[in-house]
Amino acid sequence: MNDSYKPKILAFLCNWCSYAGADLAGVSRIQYPPFIRVVRVMCSGRVDPLFIVNALKEGFDGVLVSGCHIGDCHYLEGNKYTVKRMEILAQLLDLSGIGRKRVHLRWASAAEAKPFADNVIEVSNIIKEAGPFNAKDHEMALNALTRALSTTRLRWLVGIDRHLTENENVYHEKTDPILFEKVKNDAITAEYQKALIQEALSKGPVTVREMADQTGIAIYTVSKRLNELELGGMADLKSCEGNTPRFASPV
């Protein structure tokens, strides 16, 4: 890695802990590489995964989200939600081929100036090692991520995750975590693949095989996901030359 490469890293720091920790690092003149650009948020729970995908789209090479330690959160449970969101985002990043190494979640309390700096150093090295992130190469994946993360299905599942697995569901029973995990994972894969296919569809009528090539998803899986889109009214059979039907998103 040539040393001249300067990664651009976006850092969301929660106002009560990490931001204060960062100030303390300043006051104590603790040095850390100048690659992070800080955005202060009231709580790490405020960070919507869409912000992160957007950051990658607009040129950042990596994103750091830093908040209070579990249990210290000024808003009691904000950071617990952040954990769930980052998990789902990490899964989606892996699915999209971008890889979870671009996004990091760290805790640093108001007093932990050194640990904060160490986090920044560590993240900078990882991103440096990962090299520059060219948004253009991953354009389709990024758009698909945005679509998937905007679906009510995923947002609802992330939001309800803790409520069901920790307290009780509407049947006054605790939902079996393995079942919930399976439902969540199915939903993540399904919504991401459907989003990718919608990307392909939006560029005009395409066949199943063309969609498979463009998205890298197996042909039969494309066929099944396409069916889900059709039932949801998000895809239509447009034409059929010879034996190959072409599909497109409804006008």
């Binding site: 066949t207 199943v208 498979a212 039969y220 066929s223 069916n227 034996n243 190959t244 039907p245």
Partner: peptide
């Protein structure tokens, strides 16, 4: 049905000949 009555095969939605 799943394909709204258009005859297609499940694997790649081609119209079977």
């Amino acid at each position: 049905g799943p394909y709204k009555g258009h005859l297609m095969r499940p694997y790649d939605r081609e119209v079977p000949q």
